[in-house]
Structures are given as structure tokens and as C-alpha cells.
Nucleic acid binder design. Structure first.
Lengths: 343, 343
DNA sequence: TTGAAAGCGATACCAC
DNA sequence: GTGGTATCGCTTTCAA
């Protein structure tokens, strides 16, 4: 019979073993200056021997601070969010914070649970990539008193911090690029605009580019696909049958664009000879793909770093309800080899 | 002057407002049966009004359980780990656990800190994807009493739980496939084998396939690249200059393979006409890429699910030092379009 | 059915 | 320099 799981040693245990009080042990381990050097060394040595680790639960309870932030995002398997997370986690770690990840799968219900979990765990702050199924979750967050920053998407209707890309500009750049290359019938394979500020803004940019060029926006060329499920293929191939005059696709994201390309290829449609494609996000800034996708750089790292910086400022600041940062990272067109000049 | 950050309400606050004791409030909120229905409803209503959230710090401290697991992995921006994480996070959430993510960037030092953080936060268990810079960190984990499962890579020299792919089998399958298609000079673009059981085992498979076919292993055809940095290009192009008789590449991972393809393309080398490529991981099971890469399915989801299941069993079980699971997920060759038959 | 009090492990204030 | 003691917010005996 084993002697059961070994209990982790506590300050008390060290105190008993060394003969000092709990208080002294605590101060010694934290390198407080008012402890005799010998005492400190002795205590630290015993602590090491016993395999002592500070119990963050107890510390945090006492200190009212967990040195933990939560990252709540719609889909960690989306490279955009994955890369953002890397940046956030790294930056947070450097500042002494650990990161709790909560994935919402674009679901409002999961998101609500995620927020509750984060609040219950007393995180010091939250990087919040809203699924935007409803405003309620954001309101809950605002009412909680916990500092948070909206990331990648945001609600225009509330006054809160955000770091997002300039989606309208990006949508404009992508579309204008295609128009410039002679394309007139451009399919917008958008995300679900009803619930997604990025999708809405990119669409606004698409529209603006048409207007600037004196071209009509053709409503049937604006389609929405589920970003997650990847039902891109059917939508796309269906559209191309209906409107064989389509010569270009502006995709909501690089992932949608890549998925579209995969389906086109499977159906013998060549990119860019038959169809031109522009994506969004520039995930190739983080990963080497053998597909030189023309896309819009949304500055993933910059956006992530800005969001973290903003959050840490809010955490340090006296008033978490004060808006510190409402930032649009400036997008940039990245030419690749997926757009054909048909002029 | 604002009235400062609003303090989160506690049981005490609710007790004062309702006139009941802290105890009663606590029991009411947890739906304990020995509370009058009216009392319970009244209390729950007030709690809702006040925006009460259970303080998990205090609960956990008292209960000795955090309902949190840590995932410690080398690189979350690697799609293999990203997809695994999605699976783990989802499964954990379904079982009432939240997930702390700790990224080690393949660094032993970061890994040590990550483990300390996890232990200090009293996570109930750890999914541990070792960077394998040294065995020390794993030993620390074993000595901690906290249940953990090695994920994706593992140390053969210690008796602990793991869920990994059958890397040797996979390496064999990939290499045998190339040999079968007539390739004789196969470049292995491996990870750093000194510190990585996957790299070692895949190389062993590469070797075994050669032996089974009666072919010599050519030492200069085995090269190691940094998986992270992506110095794939230089290594690869250099090798091809040195050994123009190379007709195929077996890459450590799909990411390395994709990166290799990108560089080949930039240098006018065609895949598969000039060079055949086989990858590893089958990330296309999770993402739609317009590159039909021939690869080895390592069963990401299955592996992740198995690791989580194993961990939860250990958490529930009486003795966390008892080894519950040492699993190799069976790999499978996935034919794509990046291998040329040159027979 | 409800309340009082102990205790989880750590930190901070105040004596000595 | 060092040691008591209250406290963080919650759960759990044990009484009433």
C-alpha cells in the first residue's frame, strides 16, 4: 500500500523544520530585506530540499491579484488567432503574467461561460476576441470591473477599449487592387456579417472601392460562408456556375481563400488564370506556405502587442473603466501570385 | 473623482443584504438540498442582482482542487499543437475543467518556469509536450505529485504516462512509400534529434525502411533543421546543390515540408516533377490547403483525446504516480500529389 | 432548516 | 530581526 499522494509542503512545514515562524519563512522566501542573511539562506535551502512551491491560490487570495490574464477567442485553430496568442502569451510571460486560454468556437453560449470562468478565476484582465453573437457578454464584462480589451473585432455601439485591424481600409485595398487589375465581377466570400464587425467593415470597404471606381455593387456577388465549418467549396462552386462571368474572389480571410483555392483546384479551375483570389490577414507573415497568396496584411503581431500593452496599462491604472485605447492597425496590401491582370 | 473600482460582491455581502448567514448563502447558491426553496430562490435572486460570481481562488484553496489543467507545449503556432490544443480545451471544458496554456518555445528554461507556474497555480493535472532539452523538468514534474501525461514526445528512460504517435512506424511508412515509387536518394529533413524523441524515432523508421529494402542509409542525406526558425530553405537548397541526385525529401513535419516547397518553388524547382516530398502530421485533416501534400497521419485528434482521457483518469484515480497509459497512436500514410513515381 | 466557527495557505500589520 | 494575529472568500463539520 502506497502512502498516498504526497502533500505539497507549505510555509508551515518549512517553519516547523527550521524552527522559525511562518512569517519569517514567508519573508525569507520573498527575499525581504529585514531577514538575517544566514536565516534566509537556511530557510531557502530547506525549502528547496522539500520541493516547496508557493501556493499561488493562497497568495492571490490574500493579495487580490493573480498575475494571470485570460484570452477569450473564437477559434484558436485559426492561424490568425494562434499567432496572436503566441505573441500575447510571450509578452504576458515577460511581464510576469500567465495566460488562461478560453476558446469559444464562435458560440455566444460558450463565450458566456468563458467570461464567467475568467471572472471566477479572478484574472487580472482579459483579452477578448468577441464572437459577437450578442452584446450581452460584452456588457457583462463591462459590468464586472475586470479590465478588458476587445481584440480583432469590436462593438461600435459601446465605449470600450479595442485593438482591431482597419478592416474597412483593408477591404478597400483588396477590392481596389482587383479592380485595378481589370476585374469587374468580384465575388466577396465574406464571414457572417450579421455578427462580425470585421466582416461588416470589410464589406464596407468592398463597397467603397466599387463606388470609388464608379462601379455598381452587385448584391448577388456578396456571399457569406461559415468561417469555421468550411462550407466554402459548395458556395463557391455554386456561385461560379450561376455567374460564370466572375473573374475574382475577395475572401474574408486567408483561411477562406486557401480553402477556396483547394476547391477550385479540385474542380480544375486554375488560379489565377481562371479566377483571381485575394485573402485577408497575411498569415504567411508567420508561416511559410508554398502558395504566394495575394492578401491584406492586418499586422497580427502589432495588433496583439498593442492589445496586451493596452490591457496591462488598464490593469496598472487606477480606473479600469477608463478607456485607454481604441486602435485600428493600418492594413497593407501584400501582392502575391494569385491575382491576374486582365486589362 | 470616481468611486474607484467596484469591489466584487462576496457571500458576506449577499448574507448582509438578505439577512441570512454566509453558510446559508453558500449552500443556497450551490443548490444544496437542505435549504428551504423560498430561501434559496430569494438568495439566488439577490446574488444575480448583485452580479455575484463564485471566487474560484477561495473555493479551490478550500477544496484543494482547481478544476484547471495546464497544457505545456513547445509551440502553439505549430498547427499540430494548435489543433491538439483545440481538442484538449474542448474536452476539458466538457468535463468542467479550464485550460491554462503555457508555451515554451522549445526552450528548457521557459519550460521549467512553465512547470513551476502550473504547480504554483495548483492545476489538477498537466498535459506536457516536452521540449526535451533535458530530463530535469520531467523529473521535477514526477516529483511534484501532480498528475501529468507526456504528449507528442516522450522520454523512453523514465516510466511515466505518454500519448505519442508511433513515430518509428510513420517514418517507415513515409520512407517506404518513397522507395516504392523508385526513389533511392531520399533527403531526411529532420528536427533536432538530439533532443526530440519524435525526430529520433522518425529517423529510426527512415533507417528501417532502407534496411527492409536492402538500401544503404547515406549519412549525408540526414539533415537537421530548426523546426521553429525555419532555416529550412538554406539547408535544403545547399543540399540539392551538393547532391543533385536527390529526388525526394522526407520532412520532419508538414510545416517543414510546406516551407521546403515554398523555397523550392522560389528557386524554380518543381514538386513533384523535380523533387518529391512527404511530410508528417497530416495537418490537412484540420485545415484546407490548396497543396495536396503526401504525408503521414499522426492522428492529432485521437492523440489529444487520448492524452486528456488519460490525464482525467489519473486525476480521478487514487494514486497519481501509477502509470495509466503509454500509448502510441498508429500512423497512416496519406497519399497526396507531391510524390512522383519514377520507376 | 439555519448559524457559528474552524481552516485552506499565504501576506501584512504591529509588537517585541 | 523575528513572532503573533487578523484576514482574503469559501466550504465544511458540528450545534442548535
Amino acid at each position: 500500500m502506497g502512502n498516498g499522494p504526497v502533500q505539497r509542503p507549505t510555509l508551515k512545514d518549512i517553519a516547523q523544520k527550521t524552527g522559525y515562524s511562518i512569517n519569517t519563512v514567508s519573508r525569507a522566501l520573498r527575499n525581504m530585506p529585514d531577514i538575517a542573511v544566514e536565516t534566509r539562506e537556511r530557510i531557502r535551502e530547506v525549502a528547496r530540499e522539500m520541493g516547496y512551491h508557493n501556493n499561488a491560490l493562497a497568495s492571490s487570495l490574500r493579495l487580490g491579484r493573480t498575475n494571470t490574464i485570460a484570452v477569450i477567442i473564437p477559434d484558436i485553430s485559426n492561424l490568425f488567432y494562434a499567432f496572436a496568442l503566441v505573441e500575447i502569451e510571450r509578452g504576458a510571460r515577460e511581464q510576469g503574467y500567465s495566460t488562461i486560454l478560453l476558446n469559444t468556437s464562435e458560440s455566444g453560449a460558450f463565450e458566456q461561460n468563458a467570461i464567467k470562468t475568467a471572472l471566477q478565476k479572478n484574472v487580472d484582465g482579459i483579452i477578448f476576441g468577441p464572437a459577437q453573437q450578442s452584446l450581452d457578454n460584452t456588457r457583462m464584462l463591462m459590468g464586472s470591473g475586470t479590465p478588458f480589451v476587445q481584440f480583432a473585432r469590436h462593438f461600435e455601439s459601446v465605449n470600450a477599449d479595442f485593438c482591431v485591424g482597419d478592416d474597412k481600409l483593408g477591404g478597400y485595398q483588396a477590392t481596389a487592387h482587383l479592380i485595378e487589375k481589370g476585374h469587374r465581377n468580384i465575388l466577396l466570400l465574406n464571414g457572417l456579417a450579421a455578427h462580425n464587425s470585421s466582416a461588416r467593415d470589410r464589406q464596407a470597404g468592398y463597397r467603397a472601392a466599387h463606388e470609388a471606381a464608379g462601379l455598381p455593387v452587385q448584391p448577388d456577388l456578396v456571399r457569406e460562408v461559415s468561417i469555421l465549418a468550411g462550407d466554402v467549396g459548395q458556395q463557391l462552386m455554386g456561385m461560379l456556375r450561376q455567374r460564370p462571368d466572375i473573374t475574382a474572389v475577395f475572401a474574408y480571410s486567408d483561411l477562406v481563400a486557401l480553402s477556396a483555392m483547394a476547391h477550385l483546384q479540385q474542380n480544375g479551375v486554375r488560379v489565377p488564370q481562371d479566377i483571381s483570389i485575394v485573402g485577408f490577414d497575411y498569415i504567411q507573415s508567420c508561416i511559410n506556405l508554398p502558395v504566394p497568396l495575394t492578401t491584406v496584411d492586418i499586422k497580427i503581431r502589432e495588433m496583439a502587442a498593442a492589445a496586451l500593452k493596452c490591457l496591462l496599462e488598464k490593469i496598472a491604472g487606477p480606473d479600469s473603466s477608463k478607456v485607454v485605447c481604441q486602435k485600428f492597425t493600418r492594413t497593407e496590401l501584400v501582392p502575391g501570385a494569385t491575382v491576374q491582370d486582365i486589362n
